[in-house]
Amino acid sequence: MAVLTRSKFTVLVSIVFISGFTQGMLLPLIAILLEQAGTSATLNGLNAIALYLGIMFVAPFVEKPLQTYGYKKIIVTGLILVTLSLFLFPWYKAFWFWFALRMIVGVGDHMLHFSTQVWVTSKSPEEKRGRNIAIYGIAFGAGFGVGPLMTRFASWNESLPFIISGAFCLLSLFIMTCIKNELPDTGTPTEAGMNVFTRYLEVLKIAWVALLPAFGYGFLESFLNGSFPVFALRQGIAVEWVSILLPSFIMGSLIFQLPLGIWSDRFGRRKVLLICLVIGFMAFASTLLANKHMLIYLVLFFIAGMFIGSLFSLGMMYLSDLLPPYLLPVGNILAGIAFSAGSMSGPLIGGTFIATFDAGAFVYAICGMLAVLFIVTWLHKGDSAPKPLKN
């Protein structure tokens, strides 16, 4: 099996950074522009889920083209869809037109993320797989964190952020021309001949437990960004502190993602995942004792980010260890679906908990989800063997 070269890995990481940058820019930018146009909060929220609808729409259909045309062509197709959408946003400002464009962005983003994830997970050496996936996650997270800064350019010209982001995507397309295409491993002729339904069932049978972190991370991300600000304001936490607490969680995840990846290579994914779930549970549960001491909140959010801000990456590492190479594309599809399901359920469950439990809603929702993930993962005995570290 061909091994992922350093130069090719660098190209894939740069593309993932630009994709994260685009997603991170679109979420707040479009919300702000729709709000300024007088769009209701309900419709604004509906527009935001268009990205995830696009992901879920394309997810079942992307595996076969990947096997036929290879990683590079699927990534390039996804980049073209995203680039064209970005340049079309300023052309016509209307709710349903932007809804459709965000769905197309979701389709394109999933195509390039799906292809790059499978490429990295299947072609990385086993002893460096955790490290590589962690770097991949850091690149996306860093781009996602930088993207919202582009909203400032909208005060000069509403079209400018879209044009800048589109230009970065064009740069990604140029970079992709520098690397050689590869085809994914389809297994033996018998394995390659399995129908789609059979492959999905096989993945769920072997590695269903590794899909739970993707769901959990989607839930966590959407809940923190969508429901936590509402909870915080109702509890008297100042907007200024809300704008600091959420970035502190992201900063913790970016700083600690690589060490977690390396440790999972050394000690096994399941062990590291269980430890992260316990510490994350304790950090969020401790906020009940923080009262209104915002510095304590800040430290606890940072610690939580350090250990559970990498749930998706750890899940992908675990998944790639449990599955044979020919099932990795289907595994990545199901991980994307699990993430999207978690992302859409987070605000719904979060809103219900806030209405029901008031002061403890934020903690009960997140800690309840983390507790379920821990119990299920702990009861499931399948594990990846620790890999010896190599220089």
Rank of each mutant, 00 (worst) to 15 (best):
N132A: 04
Y318A: 04
F99M: 11
F21Y: 08
F21M: 12
D185I: 09
F281H: 13
V299C: 06
T10W: 14
V242T: 06
K390F: 02
A207N: 07
F249D: 12
A238Q: 09
G78C: 10
T177K: 01
G261K: 02
N47Y: 11
L254F: 05
G166A: 05
P247H: 00
P347Q: 02
N132R: 11
D383H: 13
A359W: 04
M282L: 15
N157E: 02
K72V: 10
L79K: 07
C178P: 13
L348G: 12
V118G: 10
I133E: 03
I80N: 07
G309H: 12
G24T: 01
V230N: 06
T39H: 00
G130H: 08
T190Q: 14
V209N: 03
G346P: 12
M111I: 00
L101C: 08
A210H: 09
I80H: 08
K123A: 07
L233I: 10
P161H: 01
V82M: 13
V146R: 05
L201T: 07
I337Q: 02
P28V: 06
P329I: 01
I337E: 03
H293V: 06
V272H: 02
L86K: 06
F140D: 14
L348Q: 10
L66A: 04
L34A: 02
L327N: 02
T10A: 08
L33I: 15
R199S: 09
G38T: 07
V120E: 01
F87V: 02
F114D: 12
N44D: 06
N44P: 15
L319A: 02
N44W: 02
L245N: 02
G193W: 07
L274D: 08
L211P: 15
M251V: 13
K205W: 00
I175G: 04
L298A: 08
P329C: 00
A94I: 04
R6F: 01
L334E: 00
T42D: 05
V120G: 13
F231L: 10
P247S: 00
V203Q: 07
A238K: 14
D109T: 03
Y92S: 01
V330Y: 13
N132D: 06
V13W: 00
R6D: 04
G166D: 14
P28C: 01
I279M: 05
K292V: 12
A290D: 07
L220T: 14
V363I: 15
S227W: 07
P148F: 00
Y71L: 10
V107H: 10
W91H: 04
F312W: 13
L224Y: 11
L379I: 09
D185F: 05
G130K: 08
L258W: 12
L29G: 02
E158P: 15
S115I: 08
V242K: 11
V146C: 09
S7A: 09
A341R: 03
S345E: 12
S222D: 13
A361M: 05
T121W: 11
L112C: 13
V76Q: 11
C178W: 06
V3P: 13
L4C: 10
G54Y: 07
A154C: 14
I164D: 01
G70N: 09
A142P: 15
Y92V: 11
A283W: 09
E127T: 14
V196T: 09
G143I: 03
T287H: 12
R6K: 11
S40F: 07
L300D: 11
